[in-house]
Structure formats: structure tokens, C-alpha cells
């Protein structure tokens, strides 16, 4: 088990280096001059040239990459071209907002998704199964952008219960987290339902029932544990997808998180900021995947043995 963890951690380093090279290359290949974009369309050539020199953009790309790597090895990500502030500070201010948002969305996904999936599977083809299946199909089909604006319209504009956006208090996160979490919950409910149904028809469940075990024990102890394995895979994948969805949700709800920062940085061709944001997202993504893989072992002893 521990060897497995160490092995996985070692694989992370080349992955991160690959991410760095790729992002650096991609940002520099994109057309668009950061100095021109920052100085604004009404700036004259003299204004842009001054800024370009100030930002160190007159250096060759290779030299810029080496400078970047050596800074990074000392834990420095450079200064944002756009704001002239340290990228580390910019990211540190924004990361908690994105983590709270995706964390809450993940919680909504897991609680609603598992509950709906289990309720559906226990009594397939019942009225509540059809109702939940219909709801989850709707949840999967509704675009994030539309859902977010509708929630604002109802809960902020008509009912005036929650703010339209901003993060000055925790309640600012409620609507965005629901927007982000609902679609994922719907997906999880669909998966949970079918996975649990498959298992309920297997021999060992029939045996457990024949032994006279109560239904709650049959589902809770025997069926659920196996049905959870595909669900955990989905949750792990979704955690990454939620980070992507956070970009849209952060824009609708004016949450200044990592997602929106990344989009703005790309728009300004703010190389250090883009690289920093992608690096942070990559680290989160890799960590979540690692945790997902390790959690299989907890759910399924066969995987533990296989790995040891």
C-alpha cells in the first residue's frame, strides 16, 4: 500500500514538468502581445514598447523559460504581467474561493446524487424512481450558464434571499455551489442507480436475503459497498470537471477564483499568471486522482491485495 503511494507520487513529477512545458509553449505560441493587450487598444507604439521592455518580454523565449524554471525551483512564480503583483500572492488570494466553491459543489453532488441513486434503485420502476430519473435527466441536460442565471432570477431577484454574487459572506457561495453541483449530482444518481441495480440481481445478494438479513443490511452492507466503486471513479473525475465548470460559474456569480483568474490571464497573455494557475489546477487534479485510486483499496480489499 505505502509502496503504491510512493510509486504514484513519483509519477507525479514528470507529469507536472510536462504540464509546465506544454503550458509555456502554448501560451507563447498563441498570437497576441501581452504588452499591447495590457497597454490597451488606444496605446501608441511608444507606450507599448516601454511596457514590453519593462516586462522583460524583449528576452528570447528560451531564456524566459529558463528564468521561469529557476524561479519556480525557489518557489517563486514571478510577477503577473497584468497587475505587476507576485503570482503566488494572486493565486493564494483566489485558491480558497475556488476550493470552497468546488468543495461545496462536490458535497451537493455526493449527498444528492447518492441518495437519489439509492432511492431509485431500491424500488425500480416505481413512481419515485421515474420522478428521480426524470429530474436527473433534466439536471444533466441543463446548461450551467442558464441554470445559474435562473437561480439568480428566482432566489436573488424575486425572493431576495441570496446575493447575486460576490464572496463577502459564505452565503454568496450557495447559489454558485448549487449551480455547479446539481448537474454532477444528476450524473452520479444515474450511475448509482444502474450500478446498484446490477448488483442487487447478483447471487450473493440473493444469498444474503435468503439468510434472512434485513433489507437495510442487504443494501447498506453488501450491495452499496460494491456499487460505490464506479461511483468513486465518477466522483474523482467530476472533481476535475467541476474545476472546469467553476470557470463559468465564477464568471456568472462574480467569484474571483482560480478559474476566472486563468481565463483573464489567458486573455491578457499574462504568461506567469497563466502558468501559475494551470500548475495549481494540475496539482489539484493529480491529487484528487491519487486519492481516488487509493480509495479503491479502502472499498475493495481485492485491490489492496493486488497492489501489495
Amino acid at each position: 500500500m505505502i509502496g503504491n503511494v510512493i510509486g504514484r507520487l513519483l509519477q507525479v513529477l514528470p507529469t507536472l514538468f510536462g504540464v509546465l512545458v506544454l503550458v509555456f509553449a502554448m501560451t507563447h505560441v498563441l498570437p497576441g502581445d501581452p504588452a499591447r493587450l495590457i497597454a490597451g487598444p488606444e496605446a501608441t507604439d511608444a507606450e507599448v514598447a516601454g511596457l514590453r521592455a519593462d516586462l522583460g518580454l524583449d528576452q528570447p523565449v528560451g531564456a524566459q523559460f529558463i528564468t521561469y524554471l529557476s524561479n519556480l525551483s525557489r518557489g517563486e512564480m514571478g510577477r503577473s504581467l497584468h497587475s505587476n503583483r507576485p503570482v503566488v500572492d494572486e493565486l493564494a488570494a483566489r485558491l480558497p474561493r475556488t476550493l470552497i466553491l468546488t468543495g461545496l459543489a462536490l458535497a451537493i453532488m455526493i449527498s444528492l446524487g447518492l441518495a437519489a441513486g439509492i432511492i431509485s434503485a431500491i424500488k425500480p420502476d416505481s413512481l419515485r424512481d421515474h420522478l428521480l430519473t426524470g429530474l436527473s435527466l433534466t439536471g444533466i441536460s441543463v446548461p450551467l450558464f442558464w441554470l445559474g442565471l435562473m437561480l439568480v432570477l428566482v432566489f436573488s431577484y424575486h425572493l431576495r434571499w441570496l446575493p447575486t454574487g460576490g464572496t463577502s459572506s459564505l452565503r454568496g457561495y450557495i447559489l454558485p455551489a448549487v449551480t455547479l453541483g446539481l448537474g454532477a449530482a444528476a450524473m452520479l444518481a444515474r450511475l448509482m442507480r444502474s450500478s446498484l441495480l446490477d448488483i442487487i440481481h447478483q447471487d450473493y445478494i440473493r444469498t444474503a436475503r435468503a439468510k434472512g438479513a434485513r433489507e437495510a443490511v442487504v443494501i447498506g452492507r453488501h450491495a452499496l459497498r460494491n456499487a460505490l466503486i464506479p461511483a468513486v471513479t465518477l466522483i474523482g473525475l467530476e472533481a476535475g470537471i467541476l474545476l472546469g465548470g467553476a470557470v463559468i460559474v465564477e464568471t456568472i456569480f462574480s467569484i474571483n477564483g482560480i478559474g476566472r483568474y486563468l481565463v483573464q490571464s489567458i486573455q491578457y497573455r499574462d504568461y506567469p499568471a497563466t502558468q501559475g494557475a494551470v500548475l495549481v489546477i494540475a496539482v489539484i487534479f493529480i491529487t484528487v486522482n491519487l486519492l481516488t485510486d487509493l480509495s479503491y483499496g479502502l472499498l475493495d480489499p481485492r485491490q489492496r491485495r493486488g497492489a501489495a
Binding site: 442565471l149 439568480v152 432570477l153 436573488s156 431577484y157 431576495r160 446575493p163 447575486t164 454574487g165 460576490g166 464568471t251 456568472i252 456569480f253 462574480s254 474571483n256 476566472r260
Partner: peptide, 18 residues
């Protein structure tokens, strides 16, 4: 000064008095 990049959200923030 608050940043509200999305047009619709900005309009709603004005209409709700935020």
C-alpha cells in the same frame, strides 16, 4: 467598486439594489 463581469449578473445586481 466591485467586479461583476457577467452582463446579466451586473444588471440583476442593480435591479436588486446590491
Amino acid at each position: 467598486l466591485r467586479e461583476i463581469p457577467e452582463n446579466e449578473s451586473r444588471l440583476l445586481a442593480l435591479e436588486t439594489g446590491e
